[in-house]
Design a protein around this nucleic acid. Sequence first.
DNA 1: ACATTGACCTGAGAGC
DNA 2: TGCTCTCAGGTCAATG
Length: 286
Amino acid sequence: MPELPDVEIFRRYLNATSLHQEIERVEIRRSRQMLEGVSARTLRTRLEGHAFDAVRRHGKYVFAGLDGGDWLVLHFGMTGYPAYFRDIGREPPHARLLMGFANGFHLAYVSQRMFGTISMTDDVEGFVTAKRLGPDALAPDLDLDAFRGRLSGRRATAKSALLNQRIIAGIGNIYSDEILFQAGVHPSLRIDRLDEEAVRRLFHSMKRVLNTAIEKRVDPDRFPRTYIAPRRGPGGRCPKCGRELIRERIAGRSAYYCPHHQKGRRGAMTVRDCGSLGSQPPQGAA
DNA sequence: ACATTGACCTGAGAGC
DNA sequence: TGCTCTCAGGTCAATG
């Protein structure tokens, strides 16, 4: 669940709540599963007595910078989120890392299904390189040319290329479906069979969908009416033509798509019957 | 080198 | 009611 837009909201949340407060106490649970490349003991000593002073994000990872130069690295798996609260009795269930600040507040890293990981690094770029992550999907220097370059030579389906964090970092199952729908690209079309125009639509849909989701605070109820994300699930219908969405296992995941607006499987496609696809104006004031 | 599949983990819900 | 099965989904090791 936490994909780039969710993690960006987490980053802003941490930035607004957890900076410049001394960390007095640290509690780590289920460290065997949760910690990656750092011992519970080391993690505790590097956090205690220090304070966060910056929060960065790359793809689905958050990096919380400490005044000593270390970075706490959080990956949220599919059920993770940060929680900042005062009353210790309000601690959410499944908190795996609990920090107590000098101001009496607490910050928990919550992960019910424990697919997430907690680690430390002294070099964010080095961490990203070691994980072999591609550029962040919203990085300004990931322009159309760079995007095309990342995809070139790939034979994977469009769906699995978008999901591949080594090609581009940040896109997960929900937003890959949304990007493909807005671009009018069938999820199981091969990347190397897309024409120039389809690649261009994919690129612009990627940027627009992710930025829109952040702007709408990842609340599907506030997404534009033309989005399929809120319609995933049994009986979901295409917001543009009313046809029932198809659910199909592609790239090992459940893909939802509209059989009318996302045709394909045979070479490159055009969508001249969907003039407004992938080009709706920015919605909402504010 | 690249692409695909299954395991990891927990809880909810379906079916019997 | 209680059991088993399936599903959710990000990532990585194993396999093709």
